[in-house]
């Protein structure tokens, strides 16, 4: 019994001694938290780059991680609506409740596009707040990084100065990288593409790609034969250079279109860990642009 009493404070002490614990809902925010937090944060990513972040279950390991989190870094905009509220509820952790300092939603720092004018589930898996896949543009990531730095300083004020330094450093490296990516991606401007899932709006706006049509007629619903034929007809009128799908999604519709039209295919990582090359935020965009350029040949 005495041993147990000695052990209990140790259990608690562990979380107190460690850096701040960040629970990131998606790998891109885990990577950004590492960039900005460095050694001062312990980051856990609830999902990998090969998982659809919408369809996660509030499984035991996530509850345990949420229990010890000082800061949630998630996308928001209803992307995690199926499981994040459950984690907040079941973890009994006051730090991560909605509105608390430990509740950070990246989409709050970005102006969301594709906000549906009609909210009706007959239109498929629509997101009421707008397109939540904000990590496809480095400009969004810059905005999120700025807000996240402030939040880290709030949550861990003792290290505020260090977070400021890391932000300055990241900001400089990221802006240089953006310049480089924009130069590399110059030939992609105005190139017509088809997408499998409508998740790339921010990337296309950034690089000036032109989306001709979408294989999934309704987001989140596998395309029907009719949908695919409509795509073929549309492509006869407006040919596209390539079809784009995300690594975490099955590529069947994309492969079908490739076999029908001989169009190039670009499987993009979508997020950090989406493929072997995308190990952090920088390599994510290096790889994304490289793959787009390869498919543009």
């Amino acid at each position: 019994m005495r041993k147990l009493i000695v052990l209990i404070p140790l259990l608690f002490a562990h979380s107190a001694l460690a850096d701040i614990n960040i629970f990131a809902c998606e790998p891109e925010w885990a990577a950004l938290s590492k960039e900005l937090g460095g050694d001062h944060v312990t980051v856990y990513s609830a999902t990998t780059g090969l998982q659809d972040p919408h369809y996660i279950q509030a499984r035991p390991s996530l509850i345990a991680k949420a229990r010890r989190a000082d800061l949630l870094v998630c996308t928001g905009a209803e992307l995690e609506i199926g499981w994040l509220p459950l984690l907040q509820q079941k973890s009994g952790n006051s730090a991560i409740q909605t509105g608390a300092a430990g509740y950070f939603m990246a989409s709050d720092s970005v102006k969301l596009s594709d906000v549906p004018t009609v909210l009706d589930r007959s239109q498929g898996d629509v997101h009421a707040a707008g397109n939540p896949h904000i990590q496809t543009s480095p400009l969004n990531i810059l905005n999120v990084a700025k807000s996240l730095t402030k939040r880290l300083q709030d949550v861990d004020s003792a290290n505020a100065e260090l977070y400021e330094q890391r932000w300055q450093d990241f900001n400089q490296r990221w802006q240089l990288a953006i310049t480089k990516w924009q130069q590399q991606a110059a030939p992609l401007k105005g190139v017509s593409v088809v997408v499998q899932h409508n998740g790339w709006g921010y990337l296309f706006d950034w690089l000036g790609l032109n989306k001709v049509t979408t294989l999934e007629a309704k987001p989140g619903i596998p395309p029907t034969v009719d949908d695919l034929n409509n795509v073929l007809n549309k492509l006869k009128v407006t040919p596209a250079k390539m079809v784009i799908n995300a690594a975490y999604q099955p590529s069947r519709p994309t492969d079908w279109l490739v076999s029908k039209t001989g169009i190039n295919k670009a499987t993009l990582p979508f997020t950090v860990g989406g493929d072997d090359q995308s190990t952090d935020l920088f390599s994510l965009f290096d790889d994304t642009i490289q793959r787009l350029l390869d498919a543009n040949k």
Partner: peptide
């Protein structure tokens, strides 16, 4: 310019 023009840390929806 793009960075300036993208809304900085827009308030929550």
């Amino acid at each position: 310019d793009t960075i300036k023009n993208t809304p900085p840390a827009a308030p929550a929806p």
